[in-house]
Computed example of a mutant assay.
Amino acid sequence: MSNIQEQINILVEVQGVELEIHQADRLVNALNNESAALDRSIAEREIRVSSEKAALDDLKKTYRDLESESKINAGMIVKSNEKLRAVKTNKEYQSILKEIDEIRKKNSGIEDRMLEQLEAIESAEAAVKAKEMELASFVQSYQEKKEAFAAKEKRERQAVESLNEKKARISANVDPSLITVMDDVKKKVRGLAVVPVQQAICMGCHMNIPAQLFNELQRFDELRFCPHCHRIIYWKERE
């Protein structure tokens, strides 16, 4: 096997390891994205529960305000009844009775609203309880998934570390200038930098290369490039 052929074989091997690293990095990023999506989901659920609780608190506050107003009105009725015992004219008596009647009517409306608030509070409490149970269930699932994502990410990061070490070992056996050439080509083509040629067809761009270049490739005497996509090319027998 010629020296250039050996060097190309090493470049292909390095490229293969780089692909594995890229795939592992993509998986790590995907795991991070899924983990972030989980975080957003649980935050949204917590906000919904907080919103439900805030709405319940508002209902309870409104009920307390109505209850306080009702007690004030009840006190006013008691005082008006006491005034009745002290009146001396029929006109004053009728006036106080009218006043008591208006307060009672007002209180009746307040009591109706209090009943409506109690129903709303009961419904809101049920909604809050359901949301809290749903959140608790989701939190348990969330924690399990987060732990699974963390474990997978750790494995993938270890794999990337191992692959980088493998790449360094393999790269040590190739001319550094060839690694530089491969990196430059990779940046330009944004994909595989080293590809085989089979039956005079570049496997990178799938275009036919000139017959003379195809014959020269089989000599493995120097690095050659596809005239169409400018990738590094090498001859490979059809399997």
Rank of each mutant, 00 (worst) to 15 (best):
V78Y: 13
K79D: 13
S80T: 08
N81Y: 15
N81F: 12
N81C: 08
E82I: 15
K83S: 15
K83N: 15
K83W: 04
L84E: 12
L84Q: 05
L84T: 09
R85F: 01
V87C: 03
K88L: 05
K88N: 07
K88R: 11
T89C: 05
T89M: 05
K91C: 03
E92V: 03
E92H: 06
E92W: 02
E92I: 02
Y93H: 07
Q94A: 10
Q94Y: 10
Q94P: 00
I96T: 02
I96G: 02
K98Y: 04
E99A: 07
E99W: 03
E99Y: 11
E99S: 13
I100A: 04
D101K: 14
D101H: 14
D101M: 12
E102R: 14
R104S: 12
K105H: 09
K105P: 00
K105V: 05
K106R: 14
K106H: 14
S108Q: 15
G109M: 04
G109F: 03
G109D: 11
E111I: 11
D112M: 10
D112N: 14
D112S: 14
R113T: 07
R113K: 10
R113M: 00
R113L: 01
M114T: 02
L115K: 10
L115S: 09
L115W: 06
L115D: 11
Q117K: 15
Q117I: 00
Q117M: 09
Q117T: 06
L118Y: 10
A120W: 01
A120P: 01
I121T: 06
I121A: 03
S123A: 13
A124M: 10
E125A: 05
A126N: 13
A126H: 12
A126Q: 13
A126S: 12
A127F: 06
A127R: 10
V128F: 08
V128M: 08
K129T: 07
K129I: 02
K129V: 02
K129F: 07
A130V: 12
K131E: 05
K131D: 06
E132Y: 01
M133K: 14
M133P: 00
E134D: 15
E134G: 11
L135S: 04
L135P: 01
L135F: 02
A136F: 05
A136I: 01
A136Y: 05
